[in-house]
């Protein structure tokens, strides 16, 4: 039982990270109907920016961990958001009137550009960092197995919850959120009511990238390493999470992220680590056979 709880904690933490990335996929899909394949690499860029900012802050002699973390978070969000904005501006917007597959191909291209850029500028080797947040709590010790909740895990989960709350507030209660949902449903009509659709789409990419940056930073804190290739697998997993939850649905993305995180963790814990990806994707396939629109997706509405 203790072992089970430990895996539950691990799974939720991993799921939080996936969920944060998945929101970026689902938001972009909702508003422009494309899969932003470069999003995983935006997450990787976020991880690198967090690492670089951290090293700079430490090298100028900062020692207060909470202040460092907050600064790293803000800088990573801001810089990665700029990346997200730029990618949309140069690779997607010019293709918006083009045929449907064009922006998707462009996205795959951007994915290579970003990962190669990181490889060339930062080197191909895995970059480790010493654990920044240490310590933790032992929740229960039965003698032969102790359930641990580390401080890193708490930070990851709490940050995710706070950001999700803020994000939900923005989408459901603010002018920008209304504009975004309006563009999602009918871009032409939104434009006729004076909404600048291009600007709204740009902002969607910015927010998605900022959340991916948070995920990148959490990944760095949790696993203590980043490399130029990590965006690929994490991106595919988060995309899977978005599809599992019902692509286009924001709570679905988070739920899908948690589901994928839990499935992976439990499979690794009870069966085999090598086949954890197989398990995650198998569950995806099974869910999609019975619920083609995902867990929380709305059925496709025929547009007349």
């Amino acid at each position: 039982m203790d072992y089970f709880f430990q895996q539950l904690i691990n799974g939720l933490v991993l799921g939080s990270i996936y969920g944060l990335i998945a929101i970026g996929y689902t938001m972009v899909y909702g508003i422009v109907g494309m899969i932003n394949f470069a999003h995983g690499d935006i997450f990787m860029i976020g991880g690198f920016i967090a690492l670089i900012t951290f090293l700079i802050l430490v090298s100028i002699g900062m020692t207060m961990v909470p202040v460092i973390l907050l600064l790293v978070l803000l800088v990573a969000m801001a810089v990665t958001a700029l990346y997200g904005w730029t990618v949309e501006r140069i690779a997607y917007r010019p293709l918006r009137q083009s045929f449907r597959l064009a922006p998707m191909l462009s996205a795959i291209g951007m994915s290579f550009v970003l990962s190669n850029f990181a490889q060339v500028s930062q080197g191909a080797r895995v970059k480790p960092v010493p654990p920044i947040i240490t310590g933790g709590y032992t929740l229960h010790d039965s003698g032969n197995f102790a359930v641990q909740l580390s401080n890193v895990q708490i930070v990851v989960v709490v940050t995710t919850i706070v950001l999700l709350a803020a994000f939900t507030y923005i989408v459901s209660r603010t002018r920008f959120g209304r504009d975004m949902r309006a563009c999602e449903q009918d871009q032409t009509m939104a434009a006729l009511l004076g909404v600048d659709v291009d600007r709204t789409i740009s902002m969607t990419f910015v927010i998605g990238a900022a959340l991916a940056a948070v995920a990148g930073m959490m990944y760095l804190l949790y696993y203590g390493l980043v490399d130029f290739f990590m965006g690929f697998i994490a991106g595919i997993k988060a995309f899977t999470a978005a599809v599992l939850g019902g692509i286009g649905s924001l709570p679905g993305a988070m739920l899908g992220g948690l589901a994928i995180g839990l499935i992976e963790t439990f499979w690794s814990a009870y069966f085999s680590v090598e086949y954890k990806d197989v398990a995650a994707f198998s569950i995806l396939i099974i869910v999609l056979i019975f619920m083609p629109t995902g867990l929380l997706g709305r059925p496709e509405v025929e547009k007349v």
Partner: peptide
């Protein structure tokens, strides 16, 4: 061409963008 998934009030709010 209303925004079907938004409330009546929200539809009117978008127009005041």
């Amino acid at each position: 061409r209303l925004f079907p998934g938004m409330t009546a009030l929200e539809n009117l709010m978008v127009a005041q963008h």
